[in-house]
């Protein structure tokens, strides 16, 4: 019943599943898996930490976006309610990138105390409604955006 090939395959499938569960147990439950850091944490970075490529999430500060034509890009500020960091972005931002909404920037916190990024992602909130409702000023219940940054 237990031919050699079957046994190896069985062990393989068990390893696969054990690996998956192990990743869950060690990766997700531990402190290791941090998808992004907040502007306050970036401000407190030591010089060694600045070497690594990181993701920073925050809310795009209103009236902070300034575009440049050459090279195409923009500068803006990200905030988590406590600290604010300036971001220099090269490229064309995604369509849903917007002032007063969440954004995740990938890049480096450099010695000039500016975050340099070439990739931004939009982090949208959980409320959905047609534009007419939005213009009528209706607000749907949602989690405070700053609280979604460090739950």
């Amino acid at each position: 019943m237990w031919t050699k090939g079957k046994k190896t395959s069985l062990i393989l499938s068990l390893v696969l599943v054990a690996g998956a569960l192990g990743y869950l147990a060690l990766g997700n439950f531990g402190e290791n898996l941090v998808y992004f850091v907040t502007p306050s944490e970036v401000r407190a970075f030591s010089p060694e930490q600045s070497q690594k490529k990181i993701r920073v999430a925050g809310m795009v500060v209103k009236k902070s976006i300034k575009t440049q034509a050459d090279p195409v890009g923009l500068t803006f500020e990200l905030t988590d309610g406590e600290a604010t960091i300036p971001v220099v972005f090269q490229g064309i931002p995604p369509d849903l990138f917007k002032e007063g909404q969440g954004a995740v920037a990938e890049g480096h916190w450099q010695a000039d105390k500016v975050f340099h990024s070439k990739m931004i992602m939009a982090k949208h909130s959980e409320d959905y409604m047609p534009i007419e409702m939005k213009r009528a000023g209706i607000k749907l219940p949602k989690k405070d955006f700053m609280k979604t940054l460090s739950p």
Partner: peptide, 21 residues
Amino acid sequence: WRTLHQPLSISMRGVSMSGDI
């Protein structure tokens, strides 16, 4: 955890979707 995903739209906070969505 910190994710790119939005929080749950239907939760203890209420329903954060308009009726036609």
